[in-house]
Nucleic acid binder design. Structure first.
Lengths: 222, 222
DNA sequence: AAAAACTATATTGTATACAATATATATTAT
DNA sequence: ATAATATATATTGTATACAATATAGTTTTT
Protein backbone atom coordinates (compact mmCIF):
# COMPACT_ATOMS: atom_id res chain seq x y z
CA UNK A 1 0.00 0.00 0.00
CA UNK A 2 1.48 3.29 -1.14
CA UNK A 3 1.94 5.93 1.51
CA UNK A 4 -0.08 8.94 0.58
CA UNK A 5 1.47 12.23 1.43
CA UNK A 6 -1.22 14.59 2.54
CA UNK A 7 -1.28 18.31 2.90
CA UNK A 8 -1.38 19.74 6.39
CA UNK A 9 -4.88 20.99 5.67
CA UNK A 10 -6.06 17.45 4.96
CA UNK A 11 -4.46 16.16 8.14
CA UNK A 12 -6.06 18.90 10.20
CA UNK A 13 -9.44 18.14 8.63
CA UNK A 14 -9.14 14.49 9.62
CA UNK A 15 -7.99 15.22 13.16
CA UNK A 16 -10.68 17.81 13.81
CA UNK A 17 -13.41 15.69 12.25
CA UNK A 18 -12.48 12.78 14.46
CA UNK A 19 -12.46 15.02 17.52
CA UNK A 20 -15.89 16.35 16.72
CA UNK A 21 -17.36 12.94 15.88
CA UNK A 22 -15.90 11.38 19.00
CA UNK A 23 -17.22 14.17 21.17
CA UNK A 24 -13.79 15.30 22.31
CA UNK A 25 -14.65 18.68 20.86
CA UNK A 26 -17.97 19.58 22.44
CA UNK A 27 -20.62 21.15 20.24
CA UNK A 28 -21.02 24.87 20.67
CA UNK A 29 -17.55 25.37 22.10
CA UNK A 30 -15.53 27.93 20.11
CA UNK A 31 -12.68 26.64 17.97
CA UNK A 32 -9.84 29.14 18.28
CA UNK A 33 -7.60 29.12 15.25
CA UNK A 34 -4.42 30.02 17.12
CA UNK A 35 -4.97 27.42 19.82
CA UNK A 36 -5.66 24.66 17.30
CA UNK A 37 -2.68 25.71 15.22
CA UNK A 38 -0.32 25.50 18.17
CA UNK A 39 -1.76 22.22 19.37
CA UNK A 40 -1.33 20.66 15.93
CA UNK A 41 2.00 22.33 15.18
CA UNK A 42 0.87 24.08 12.05
CA UNK A 43 0.13 27.67 11.14
CA UNK A 44 -3.34 29.13 11.18
CA UNK A 45 -3.70 28.87 7.40
CA UNK A 46 -4.27 25.09 7.22
CA UNK A 47 -6.46 25.37 10.32
CA UNK A 48 -8.66 27.95 8.61
CA UNK A 49 -8.87 25.89 5.45
CA UNK A 50 -9.76 22.80 7.46
CA UNK A 51 -12.50 24.66 9.30
CA UNK A 52 -13.97 25.79 5.99
CA UNK A 53 -14.06 22.23 4.72
CA UNK A 54 -15.66 20.98 7.90
CA UNK A 55 -18.25 23.70 7.59
CA UNK A 56 -19.16 22.30 4.19
CA UNK A 57 -19.63 18.91 5.85
CA UNK A 58 -21.97 20.49 8.34
CA UNK A 59 -19.79 19.69 11.34
CA UNK A 60 -18.65 23.25 11.95
CA UNK A 61 -20.26 26.65 11.73
CA UNK A 62 -18.00 29.47 10.66
CA UNK A 63 -19.01 33.09 11.22
CA UNK A 64 -16.88 35.86 9.71
CA UNK A 65 -14.86 37.74 12.34
CA UNK A 66 -16.58 35.76 15.09
CA UNK A 67 -14.93 32.40 14.70
CA UNK A 68 -15.88 28.77 14.32
CA UNK A 69 -17.60 26.26 16.55
CA UNK A 70 -18.73 22.68 16.28
CA UNK A 71 -22.38 22.56 15.29
CA UNK A 72 -25.01 21.03 17.49
CA UNK A 73 -28.24 19.56 16.23
CA UNK A 74 -31.46 20.01 18.14
CA UNK A 75 -34.18 17.37 18.17
CA UNK A 76 -35.94 18.77 15.11
CA UNK A 77 -32.72 18.79 13.14
CA UNK A 78 -31.96 15.20 14.09
CA UNK A 79 -35.43 14.34 12.88
CA UNK A 80 -34.90 16.11 9.60
CA UNK A 81 -31.47 14.60 9.04
CA UNK A 82 -32.55 11.01 9.59
CA UNK A 83 -35.67 11.38 7.48
CA UNK A 84 -33.60 12.84 4.67
CA UNK A 85 -31.26 9.88 4.98
CA UNK A 86 -34.13 7.39 4.94
CA UNK A 87 -35.49 8.85 1.72
CA UNK A 88 -32.22 9.22 -0.15
CA UNK A 89 -30.66 5.95 1.00
CA UNK A 90 -33.88 4.10 0.26
CA UNK A 91 -33.86 5.38 -3.28
CA UNK A 92 -30.17 4.62 -3.63
CA UNK A 93 -30.59 1.05 -2.41
CA UNK A 94 -33.45 0.43 -4.83
CA UNK A 95 -31.31 1.63 -7.71
CA UNK A 96 -28.35 -0.39 -6.52
CA UNK A 97 -30.11 -3.72 -6.08
CA UNK A 98 -31.14 -3.85 -9.72
CA UNK A 99 -27.64 -4.78 -10.75
CA UNK A 100 -25.57 -5.26 -7.65
CA UNK A 101 -22.82 -7.86 -7.99
CA UNK A 102 -22.64 -11.06 -5.94
CA UNK A 103 -19.16 -9.94 -5.01
CA UNK A 104 -20.47 -6.79 -3.33
CA UNK A 105 -23.01 -8.83 -1.41
CA UNK A 106 -20.32 -11.25 -0.26
CA UNK A 107 -18.24 -8.33 0.91
CA UNK A 108 -21.24 -6.93 2.80
CA UNK A 109 -21.63 -10.30 4.53
CA UNK A 110 -18.01 -10.19 5.63
CA UNK A 111 -18.32 -6.67 7.00
CA UNK A 112 -21.46 -7.62 8.86
CA UNK A 113 -19.61 -10.41 10.67
CA UNK A 114 -16.91 -7.97 11.73
CA UNK A 115 -19.58 -5.52 12.83
CA UNK A 116 -21.20 -8.02 15.14
CA UNK A 117 -17.95 -9.05 16.73
CA UNK A 118 -16.87 -5.41 17.14
CA UNK A 119 -19.85 -4.46 19.23
CA UNK A 120 -18.66 -5.83 22.53
CA UNK A 121 -15.01 -4.84 22.31
CA UNK A 122 -13.24 -1.75 23.45
CA UNK A 123 -13.09 1.26 21.17
CA UNK A 124 -16.36 -0.05 19.77
CA UNK A 125 -17.82 3.30 18.75
CA UNK A 126 -15.03 4.20 16.36
CA UNK A 127 -14.69 0.89 14.56
CA UNK A 128 -18.44 0.36 14.60
CA UNK A 129 -19.23 3.56 12.74
CA UNK A 130 -16.52 2.86 10.20
CA UNK A 131 -17.75 -0.66 9.54
CA UNK A 132 -21.36 0.47 9.55
CA UNK A 133 -20.58 3.03 6.86
CA UNK A 134 -18.65 0.44 4.85
CA UNK A 135 -21.56 -2.00 5.08
CA UNK A 136 -24.07 0.50 3.78
CA UNK A 137 -21.76 1.77 1.03
CA UNK A 138 -21.32 -1.82 -0.08
CA UNK A 139 -25.05 -2.22 -0.52
CA UNK A 140 -25.21 1.02 -2.53
CA UNK A 141 -22.28 0.13 -4.78
CA UNK A 142 -24.50 -1.14 -7.58
CA UNK A 143 -26.27 2.17 -8.05
CA UNK A 144 -23.43 3.86 -9.86
CA UNK A 145 -24.53 7.25 -8.61
CA UNK A 146 -21.38 8.98 -7.40
CA UNK A 147 -22.97 12.30 -6.52
CA UNK A 148 -25.76 10.75 -4.50
CA UNK A 149 -23.27 8.48 -2.76
CA UNK A 150 -21.12 11.48 -1.82
CA UNK A 151 -24.17 13.23 -0.45
CA UNK A 152 -25.18 10.19 1.58
CA UNK A 153 -21.70 10.01 3.06
CA UNK A 154 -21.81 13.65 4.09
CA UNK A 155 -25.19 13.21 5.74
CA UNK A 156 -23.89 10.13 7.50
CA UNK A 157 -20.91 11.99 8.88
CA UNK A 158 -23.35 14.29 10.56
CA UNK A 159 -25.53 11.50 11.87
CA UNK A 160 -22.44 9.64 12.99
CA UNK A 161 -21.89 11.89 16.00
CA UNK A 162 -25.26 10.99 17.39
CA UNK A 163 -24.90 7.33 16.63
CA UNK A 164 -21.53 7.23 18.39
CA UNK A 165 -22.80 9.18 21.34
CA UNK A 166 -25.65 6.77 21.64
CA UNK A 167 -23.32 3.78 21.41
CA UNK A 168 -21.05 5.15 24.10
CA UNK A 169 -23.61 6.40 26.57
CA UNK A 170 -26.53 4.08 26.15
CA UNK A 171 -24.88 0.88 25.09
CA UNK A 172 -25.63 1.01 21.40
CA UNK A 173 -28.31 0.79 18.82
CA UNK A 174 -30.02 -2.19 20.30
CA UNK A 175 -31.80 -3.38 17.19
CA UNK A 176 -29.07 -2.66 14.67
CA UNK A 177 -27.63 -6.19 14.63
CA UNK A 178 -30.74 -8.16 13.66
CA UNK A 179 -31.91 -5.36 11.36
CA UNK A 180 -28.68 -5.47 9.38
CA UNK A 181 -29.00 -9.24 8.97
CA UNK A 182 -32.59 -8.98 7.76
CA UNK A 183 -31.65 -6.18 5.37
CA UNK A 184 -28.82 -8.19 3.89
CA UNK A 185 -31.11 -11.23 3.46
CA UNK A 186 -33.61 -9.18 1.44
CA UNK A 187 -30.76 -7.82 -0.67
CA UNK A 188 -29.42 -11.30 -1.38
CA UNK A 189 -32.82 -12.53 -2.48
CA UNK A 190 -33.22 -9.36 -4.53
CA UNK A 191 -36.51 -8.49 -2.84
CA UNK A 192 -36.08 -4.81 -3.56
CA UNK A 193 -39.25 -3.44 -1.98
CA UNK A 194 -38.75 -5.36 1.23
CA UNK A 195 -35.10 -4.40 1.41
CA UNK A 196 -35.89 -0.72 0.95
CA UNK A 197 -38.64 -0.85 3.56
CA UNK A 198 -36.31 -2.57 6.01
CA UNK A 199 -33.56 -0.01 5.39
CA UNK A 200 -35.89 2.91 5.98
CA UNK A 201 -37.26 1.33 9.10
CA UNK A 202 -33.69 0.68 10.26
CA UNK A 203 -32.70 4.33 9.82
CA UNK A 204 -35.87 5.64 11.41
CA UNK A 205 -35.65 3.30 14.37
CA UNK A 206 -32.12 4.49 15.11
CA UNK A 207 -33.52 8.01 14.87
CA UNK A 208 -36.13 7.15 17.48
CA UNK A 209 -33.59 5.67 19.87
CA UNK A 210 -31.30 8.64 19.50
CA UNK A 211 -34.10 11.15 19.95
CA UNK A 212 -35.31 9.38 23.06
CA UNK A 213 -31.78 9.44 24.42
CA UNK A 214 -31.32 13.14 23.62
CA UNK A 215 -34.66 13.99 25.18
CA UNK A 216 -33.77 12.12 28.34
CA UNK A 217 -30.42 13.90 28.58
CA UNK A 218 -32.10 17.26 28.02
CA UNK A 219 -34.39 16.67 30.96
CA UNK A 220 -31.47 15.80 33.20
CA UNK A 221 -29.77 19.07 32.34
CA UNK A 222 -32.77 21.24 33.06
CA UNK B 1 -31.20 48.30 4.02
CA UNK B 2 -27.96 48.05 5.92
CA UNK B 3 -24.79 47.74 3.94
CA UNK B 4 -23.12 44.48 4.79
CA UNK B 5 -19.38 44.54 4.88
CA UNK B 6 -18.11 41.30 3.51
CA UNK B 7 -14.78 39.64 3.75
CA UNK B 8 -12.67 39.45 0.63
CA UNK B 9 -13.16 35.71 0.63
CA UNK B 10 -16.93 36.15 0.43
CA UNK B 11 -16.61 38.64 -2.40
CA UNK B 12 -14.33 36.33 -4.33
CA UNK B 13 -16.77 33.46 -3.81
CA UNK B 14 -19.59 35.51 -5.27
CA UNK B 15 -17.60 36.77 -8.22
CA UNK B 16 -16.23 33.34 -9.12
CA UNK B 17 -19.60 31.65 -8.64
CA UNK B 18 -21.22 34.12 -10.98
CA UNK B 19 -18.47 33.62 -13.54
CA UNK B 20 -18.89 29.88 -13.44
CA UNK B 21 -22.68 29.96 -13.54
CA UNK B 22 -22.67 32.45 -16.39
CA UNK B 23 -20.20 30.39 -18.34
CA UNK B 24 -17.54 33.08 -18.39
CA UNK B 25 -15.27 30.58 -16.70
CA UNK B 26 -15.38 27.53 -18.92
CA UNK B 27 -15.65 24.13 -17.26
CA UNK B 28 -12.40 22.21 -17.17
CA UNK B 29 -10.21 25.26 -17.59
CA UNK B 30 -7.66 25.58 -14.76
CA UNK B 31 -8.19 28.32 -12.19
CA UNK B 32 -4.76 29.72 -11.35
CA UNK B 33 -4.66 31.21 -7.90
CA UNK B 34 -2.10 33.89 -8.71
CA UNK B 35 -3.92 35.02 -11.84
CA UNK B 36 -7.28 35.25 -10.06
CA UNK B 37 -5.68 37.06 -7.13
CA UNK B 38 -4.16 39.69 -9.38
CA UNK B 39 -7.31 40.09 -11.43
CA UNK B 40 -9.41 40.62 -8.30
CA UNK B 41 -6.79 42.68 -6.45
CA UNK B 42 -6.49 40.39 -3.48
CA UNK B 43 -3.86 38.00 -2.23
CA UNK B 44 -3.97 34.28 -2.92
CA UNK B 45 -5.32 33.47 0.55
CA UNK B 46 -8.91 34.64 -0.04
CA UNK B 47 -8.77 33.09 -3.50
CA UNK B 48 -7.83 29.73 -2.04
CA UNK B 49 -10.53 29.95 0.60
CA UNK B 50 -13.09 30.90 -2.03
CA UNK B 51 -12.09 27.95 -4.20
CA UNK B 52 -12.54 25.61 -1.23
CA UNK B 53 -16.02 26.94 -0.60
CA UNK B 54 -16.95 26.59 -4.24
CA UNK B 55 -15.68 23.04 -4.19
CA UNK B 56 -18.14 22.32 -1.38
CA UNK B 57 -20.89 23.68 -3.62
CA UNK B 58 -19.79 21.34 -6.36
CA UNK B 59 -18.86 24.09 -8.79
CA UNK B 60 -15.11 23.62 -8.52
CA UNK B 61 -12.83 20.64 -8.19
CA UNK B 62 -9.72 21.17 -6.15
CA UNK B 63 -6.80 18.75 -6.36
CA UNK B 64 -3.89 19.13 -3.94
CA UNK B 65 -0.77 20.48 -5.63
CA UNK B 66 -2.49 20.32 -8.99
CA UNK B 67 -4.88 23.22 -8.73
CA UNK B 68 -8.55 23.95 -9.19
CA UNK B 69 -10.88 23.94 -12.17
CA UNK B 70 -14.55 24.51 -12.75
CA UNK B 71 -16.31 21.15 -12.73
CA UNK B 72 -17.94 19.83 -15.82
CA UNK B 73 -20.96 17.61 -15.65
CA UNK B 74 -21.38 14.84 -18.14
CA UNK B 75 -24.73 13.48 -19.25
CA UNK B 76 -24.89 10.86 -16.49
CA UNK B 77 -24.21 13.44 -13.83
CA UNK B 78 -26.93 15.72 -15.15
CA UNK B 79 -29.28 12.78 -14.97
CA UNK B 80 -28.31 12.01 -11.41
CA UNK B 81 -28.48 15.63 -10.29
CA UNK B 82 -31.94 16.29 -11.68
CA UNK B 83 -33.36 13.02 -10.41
CA UNK B 84 -32.03 13.77 -6.96
CA UNK B 85 -33.66 17.18 -7.15
CA UNK B 86 -36.99 15.69 -8.28
CA UNK B 87 -37.05 13.32 -5.33
CA UNK B 88 -35.97 15.75 -2.63
CA UNK B 89 -37.95 18.72 -3.88
CA UNK B 90 -41.03 16.56 -4.34
CA UNK B 91 -40.82 15.45 -0.74
CA UNK B 92 -40.16 18.98 0.43
CA UNK B 93 -43.16 20.35 -1.45
CA UNK B 94 -45.45 17.70 -0.01
CA UNK B 95 -44.35 18.60 3.51
CA UNK B 96 -44.67 22.30 2.78
CA UNK B 97 -48.18 22.25 1.34
CA UNK B 98 -49.66 20.80 4.51
CA UNK B 99 -49.41 24.12 6.25
CA UNK B 100 -48.20 26.68 3.75
CA UNK B 101 -49.53 30.19 4.34
CA UNK B 102 -51.74 32.07 1.90
CA UNK B 103 -49.17 34.82 2.11
CA UNK B 104 -46.45 32.57 0.71
CA UNK B 105 -48.72 31.51 -2.13
CA UNK B 106 -49.55 35.13 -2.93
CA UNK B 107 -45.84 35.90 -3.01
CA UNK B 108 -45.25 32.96 -5.34
CA UNK B 109 -47.93 34.34 -7.66
CA UNK B 110 -46.16 37.68 -7.74
CA UNK B 111 -42.80 36.13 -8.52
CA UNK B 112 -44.35 34.05 -11.25
CA UNK B 113 -45.63 37.19 -12.96
CA UNK B 114 -42.17 38.71 -12.88
CA UNK B 115 -40.72 35.47 -14.19
CA UNK B 116 -42.94 35.49 -17.24
CA UNK B 117 -42.17 39.07 -18.07
CA UNK B 118 -38.45 38.53 -17.57
CA UNK B 119 -38.20 35.82 -20.17
CA UNK B 120 -38.11 38.04 -23.23
CA UNK B 121 -35.87 40.77 -21.92
CA UNK B 122 -32.13 41.18 -22.03
CA UNK B 123 -30.01 39.64 -19.29
CA UNK B 124 -32.81 37.10 -19.04
CA UNK B 125 -30.66 34.19 -17.87
CA UNK B 126 -29.43 35.89 -14.71
CA UNK B 127 -32.70 37.31 -13.49
CA UNK B 128 -34.60 34.23 -14.57
CA UNK B 129 -32.57 31.84 -12.48
CA UNK B 130 -32.82 34.13 -9.48
CA UNK B 131 -36.59 34.45 -9.77
CA UNK B 132 -36.97 30.77 -10.52
CA UNK B 133 -35.12 29.90 -7.34
CA UNK B 134 -37.20 32.41 -5.35
CA UNK B 135 -40.42 30.91 -6.74
CA UNK B 136 -39.50 27.39 -5.74
CA UNK B 137 -38.24 28.44 -2.31
CA UNK B 138 -41.54 30.20 -1.74
CA UNK B 139 -43.44 27.00 -2.37
CA UNK B 140 -41.16 25.11 0.05
CA UNK B 141 -41.42 27.72 2.79
CA UNK B 142 -44.14 25.84 4.67
CA UNK B 143 -42.01 22.76 5.21
CA UNK B 144 -39.89 24.23 7.98
CA UNK B 145 -36.97 22.00 7.05
CA UNK B 146 -33.93 24.22 7.03
CA UNK B 147 -31.35 21.54 6.33
CA UNK B 148 -33.27 20.09 3.41
CA UNK B 149 -33.85 23.57 2.05
CA UNK B 150 -30.14 24.32 2.21
CA UNK B 151 -29.39 21.11 0.41
CA UNK B 152 -31.93 21.88 -2.30
CA UNK B 153 -30.37 25.27 -2.82
CA UNK B 154 -26.92 23.76 -3.24
CA UNK B 155 -28.19 21.26 -5.76
CA UNK B 156 -29.96 24.05 -7.59
CA UNK B 157 -26.79 26.10 -7.82
CA UNK B 158 -25.28 23.20 -9.66
CA UNK B 159 -28.24 22.69 -11.93
CA UNK B 160 -28.35 26.41 -12.56
CA UNK B 161 -25.36 26.35 -14.88
CA UNK B 162 -27.14 24.03 -17.23
CA UNK B 163 -30.41 25.86 -17.04
CA UNK B 164 -28.67 29.14 -17.84
CA UNK B 165 -26.67 27.62 -20.64
CA UNK B 166 -29.83 26.22 -22.09
CA UNK B 167 -31.62 29.55 -21.75
CA UNK B 168 -28.80 31.38 -23.48
CA UNK B 169 -28.05 28.98 -26.27
CA UNK B 170 -31.33 27.34 -27.01
CA UNK B 171 -33.82 30.04 -26.14
CA UNK B 172 -34.94 28.67 -22.83
CA UNK B 173 -36.87 25.98 -21.10
CA UNK B 174 -39.79 26.01 -23.45
CA UNK B 175 -42.34 24.44 -21.15
CA UNK B 176 -41.34 26.15 -17.91
CA UNK B 177 -43.93 28.93 -18.13
CA UNK B 178 -47.12 26.87 -18.34
CA UNK B 179 -45.68 24.23 -15.98
CA UNK B 180 -45.08 26.81 -13.30
CA UNK B 181 -48.64 28.09 -13.62
CA UNK B 182 -50.12 24.60 -13.36
CA UNK B 183 -47.91 23.82 -10.36
CA UNK B 184 -49.01 26.97 -8.57
CA UNK B 185 -52.66 26.20 -9.27
CA UNK B 186 -52.37 22.75 -7.65
CA UNK B 187 -50.63 24.34 -4.67
CA UNK B 188 -53.37 26.92 -4.25
CA UNK B 189 -56.07 24.28 -4.30
CA UNK B 190 -53.94 22.20 -1.91
CA UNK B 191 -53.99 19.19 -4.22
CA UNK B 192 -50.76 17.85 -2.79
CA UNK B 193 -50.35 14.72 -4.89
CA UNK B 194 -51.01 16.51 -8.14
CA UNK B 195 -48.70 19.36 -7.19
CA UNK B 196 -45.88 16.97 -6.34
CA UNK B 197 -46.37 15.03 -9.56
CA UNK B 198 -46.34 18.24 -11.56
CA UNK B 199 -43.19 19.47 -9.82
CA UNK B 200 -41.34 16.22 -10.48
CA UNK B 201 -42.44 16.23 -14.08
CA UNK B 202 -41.33 19.86 -14.35
CA UNK B 203 -37.84 19.08 -13.06
CA UNK B 204 -37.48 15.97 -15.18
CA UNK B 205 -38.68 17.67 -18.33
CA UNK B 206 -36.08 20.38 -17.91
CA UNK B 207 -33.57 17.57 -17.46
CA UNK B 208 -34.67 16.07 -20.76
CA UNK B 209 -34.35 19.34 -22.61
CA UNK B 210 -30.92 20.00 -21.18
CA UNK B 211 -29.69 16.51 -21.92
CA UNK B 212 -30.93 16.74 -25.49
CA UNK B 213 -29.12 20.04 -25.85
CA UNK B 214 -25.88 18.67 -24.39
CA UNK B 215 -26.07 15.60 -26.61
CA UNK B 216 -26.55 17.73 -29.67
CA UNK B 217 -23.61 19.94 -28.76
CA UNK B 218 -21.47 16.90 -28.10
CA UNK B 219 -22.10 15.58 -31.58
CA UNK B 220 -21.14 18.91 -33.10
CA UNK B 221 -17.80 18.83 -31.31
CA UNK B 222 -16.90 15.32 -32.39
C1' DA C 1 -26.43 54.38 38.72
C1' DA C 2 -27.20 53.72 33.75
C1' DA C 3 -25.91 54.72 29.28
C1' DA C 4 -22.55 56.21 26.08
C1' DA C 5 -17.99 56.77 24.46
C1' DC C 6 -13.59 55.42 24.56
C1' DT C 7 -9.70 52.52 25.28
C1' DA C 8 -7.13 47.96 25.45
C1' DT C 9 -7.06 43.21 24.23
C1' DA C 10 -8.16 39.12 21.80
C1' DT C 11 -9.24 37.15 17.61
C1' DT C 12 -9.96 36.86 12.93
C1' DG C 13 -8.79 38.31 7.99
C1' DT C 14 -5.28 38.99 4.49
C1' DA C 15 -0.73 40.19 2.37
C1' DT C 16 3.80 38.81 1.83
C1' DA C 17 7.56 35.55 1.85
C1' DC C 18 9.28 31.20 1.63
C1' DA C 19 8.93 25.91 1.19
C1' DA C 20 7.25 21.92 -1.16
C1' DT C 21 5.47 19.76 -5.09
C1' DA C 22 4.47 19.19 -9.88
C1' DT C 23 5.35 20.24 -14.68
C1' DA C 24 8.21 21.40 -18.51
C1' DT C 25 12.76 21.56 -20.48
C1' DA C 26 17.32 20.11 -21.07
C1' DT C 27 20.79 16.62 -20.54
C1' DT C 28 22.67 12.13 -20.39
C1' DA C 29 22.77 7.17 -21.13
C1' DT C 30 21.50 3.25 -23.79
C1' DA D 1 16.39 8.19 -31.66
C1' DT D 2 14.32 6.81 -27.27
C1' DA D 3 14.18 6.35 -22.60
C1' DA D 4 15.85 7.79 -18.31
C1' DT D 5 17.74 11.23 -15.48
C1' DA D 6 18.67 15.79 -14.07
C1' DT D 7 17.68 20.69 -14.00
C1' DA D 8 14.78 24.77 -14.34
C1' DT D 9 10.28 26.84 -14.02
C1' DA D 10 5.64 27.28 -12.63
C1' DT D 11 2.36 26.54 -9.27
C1' DT D 12 0.60 25.28 -5.06
C1' DG D 13 1.07 24.85 0.17
C1' DT D 14 2.17 27.03 4.53
C1' DA D 15 4.51 30.13 7.90
C1' DT D 16 4.99 34.66 9.40
C1' DA D 17 3.68 39.44 9.83
C1' DC D 18 0.51 42.87 9.80
C1' DA D 19 -4.35 44.90 9.27
C1' DA D 20 -9.17 44.85 10.40
C1' DT D 21 -12.79 43.65 13.37
C1' DA D 22 -15.01 42.28 17.54
C1' DT D 23 -15.08 41.86 22.54
C1' DA D 24 -14.18 43.20 27.24
C1' DG D 25 -13.03 46.54 30.29
C1' DT D 26 -12.60 51.44 31.54
C1' DT D 27 -13.76 56.01 31.67
C1' DT D 28 -16.82 59.69 30.83
C1' DT D 29 -21.31 61.73 30.47
C1' DT D 30 -26.05 62.25 31.71
Amino acid sequence: MAIEYKTRTQLVVEILREKILSGEIVAGQPLRQAALAEELNVSRIPVREALLQLEAEGLVSFEPHKGASATELNLDQVDELFELRAMIEGDLLAASLVDITDEALAQATEILAKLDSALGKENAANTWSELNSAFHNCLYSGANRPQTTDLVNILNKNADRYIRMHLLWAGGISKAGPEHAELLAFCQSREIDKAVAKLKQHILSSRDEIKAFLQQREQLNS
